[in-house]
Amino acid sequence: MAMLGPVAHGLLLAASTSTSKVDIAVFAASAAIVLSGALGVVLSRNPVHAALMLVMTLFGIAVMFVAQDAHFLAAVQVIVYAGAIVVLFLFVIMLLGVDREDAQAAEDLPGQRPIAIGLGIVALAELIILGGTANWATGNLATAGQAGGPGTNIEKLARSIFTRYLLPFEITSALLVIAVVGAVVLARRVPHEETQGQ
């Protein structure tokens, strides 16, 4: 324990002298994770590697949510996106056997790269502009109430979802159910081939 003292003191100095420095360090680290993951998704030749890079990106975003005190959002991000959606991606990749690097044909769509780069720049510009002027519709940056105040983040989130935003929430869930039913109907073509549901 006596030997651990200086180490702990060093950690402590790093942690407490200036919180903004810690915030910046966390942001920089998670941004690096997010961006390298995103680049990995695009640049990996192997679909499974790309999916794993996507998981890395999602984790970086979850860390950013935690840094913003949005713990619930971070947990949901990991549970839903990393834990369910990417697992299903991988499941499909493995089942279809497209996990060979040579399975990717050359360019299917001629000229898609310049178009993709152009659209990407447009999307980035949109994001930056919207981020700067997102309060034009409501006049507030946050409409669900102050981030501080009594109660945990989760209680506030639950309260606003189940009171003020109940109708949008229910409509969204109805939309998801319709999408699921649609997917089942589309996937179910010939009765005696219906084995995917198991």
């Binding site: 990991v78 549970i79 697992v87 493995m94 996990d99």
Partner: peptide, 25 residues
């Protein structure tokens, strides 16, 4: 004792599938 509590358990158990799945693949 994080504010998300048991959601942490669910998050970890949903991550645990990767080890098994990627090992097999």
């Amino acid at each position: 004792d994080p504010p998300i509590g048991v959601l942490f358990l669910l998050a970890m158990s949903s991550i645990a599938v990767y080890g098994v799945m990627l090992a097999g693949w």
